[in-house]
Design a protein around this nucleic acid. Structure first.
Length: 390
RNA sequence: GGGUAGAUUCCAGAGCGGUCAAAUGGGGCAGACUGUAAAUCUGCUGGCAAUGCCUUCGAAGGUUCGAAUCCUUCUCUACCCA
């Protein structure tokens, strides 16, 4: 068992903000396992590297002998959170939520220790609340406090709507902390405000307030916006090794440095060629979520395809040409069946005309042509994706 | 409840009776160059059986040879007053 001071040092590493380290140290000195809370909304079932930052930290708590409390926000998901400005997210059905929660935990346990994780649904307490209790809960917080929040403030400044239930979110999340008696709450830096509300509510309940631990937000593959499924800039933790490796190879050097620090806790070795560093980063992450063997294979395959352009040696998804044998039809079908991307005819036509499509290294630019689809040849769809003809 | 402004393609935002699938910017995609990097340059960015046709400008009606543009009603949003 590590000393409280050692634990503090380990736990605060890689965090963006801890309020406060002194409080955390005091809690650690009690010697009893801390209850570390993480709340998640079961809205999108795919966990990605962005989620992994905070989950890894939670696992670290577990490794030090503390208790992880994973709150599934089934209640909040049922209301539907219209955060993205004007777009209202359709509320999820009970079944969808439960299914999402399941896929979520299945994936989360690739990182977390199942034995040391308490999974609870916040609907268990919120669905039982009477309206009187809801009003009383609201009475604990002032409007002014809620309007402190950055995104509310911004939206008001920009004459955009803010719905009343959105203002309830921090309160609801904060109350979770009271119910589960959290000692520490983890979250991204964007969660700072919500976690602070939890502190306030705990204080009014006469509890010792939770420590706020914010982790940096991981940028997506574009390097600008935060990683999220809806922005299509994410790397899922259950993606295939090859996919994962390839996606990581497409990031910029600046982003690579950031990923390395946030995901591996290591600085980039400046003596290496940036591409080599990137390969190592990609391999390390594939190893983490798959295996060292898979990482080695992914690297080898990637090098064959993109460095040596040795098409024969590459392992590619196999696509069987169907009834339509014209270029446009085949390309569209390949996108559809192999990558589950439905592209309109116009879009595929554009790709072809612009020279994106190649067959065994030769550009094909006539959408209506019917090339010879011999078994084993490689059809390149775009910069990053190719298939082998069956 | 009263008043004012507004709702345009992924986003922001022009357009205010025909020359509008709709300027411009952002984003995205593709090509060249590269290290599937960055930067830069170029092109594309509603759909289709595609030198043409079809459907889009909050919704439904209407005026007109012709509507994103004019009229009516409705829905929604913000701001001011209560």
């Amino acid at each position: 068992m590590k000393s409280p001071a050692e634990q503090l040092q380990a736990l605060t590493r890689g965090t963006a903000r801890v309020l406060s380290e002194t409080e955390l140290l005091r809690k650690l000195e009690r010697g009893t396992p801390l209850r570390a809370k993480l709340g998640v909304d079961p809205t999108s079932p795919d966990l990605h590297l962005g989620h992994s930052v905070v989950l890894e930290k939670l696992r670290q708590f577990q490794e030090l002998g503390h208790q992880a409390v994973l709150i599934i926000g089934d209640f909040t998901a049922q209301i539907g959170d219209p955060t993205g400005r004007s777009k209202t997210r359709p509320p999820l059905s009970r079944e969808e939520i439960l299914a999402n929660a399941r896929t979520y935990t299945d994936q989360a346990f690739r990182i977390l220790d199942r034995a040391r994780t308490e999974v609870v649904f916040n609907g268990d307490w919120f669905n039982k609340m009477s309206f009187t209790e809801v009003i009383q809960l609201n009475a604990r917080v002032t409007m002014q406090q809620m309007l402190q929040r950055e995104d509310f403030k911004n939206r008001i400044a920009n004459d955009q709507e803010v719905r009343l239930h959105e203002i309830q979110y921090p309160i609801v999340q904060g109350w979770d902390s009271v119910v589960v008696r959290a000692d520490v709450e983890l979250g991204g830096t964007d969660q700072l405000f919500n976690i602070l509300v939890g502190r306030d509510l705990q204080k009014t309940e006469g509890m010792e307030p939770q420590v706020v631990m914010c982790l940096p937000i991981l940028e997506g593959l574009d390097g600008v916006q935060k990683m999220s499924k809806s922005l299509h800039n994410y790397v899922g933790i259950s993606e295939a090794p090859g996919e994962m490796f390839g996606k990581l190879m497409s990031i910029s050097d600046e982003l690579m440095a950031r990923y390395s620090v946030l995901l591996l806790g290591e600085e980039i070795d400046p003596s290496l060629h940036p591409m080599e560093s990137k390969k190592r980063l990609a391999a390390a992450l594939v190893t983490r979520y798959h295996s060292a063997t898979a990482a080695e294979a992914a690297r080898e395959n990637w090098e064959a395809l993109f460095s040596r352009k040795d098409l024969a040696a590459v392992d590619l998804p196999v696509f069987a040409v169907g009834d339509r044998r014209d270029l446009l039809g085949v390309v569209a079908a390949a996108y559809e069946t192999i990558f589950s991307e439905t592209k309109s005819g116009s879009e595929v036509r554009r790709l072809i005309l612009q020279g994106s499509v190649q067959l065994d290294g030769t550009k094909l630019t006539d959408p209506k042509s019917e090339p010879i689809w011999s078994t084993g040849c490689v059809l390149k769809l775009d910069k990053k994706r190719s298939v082998r003809i069956a």
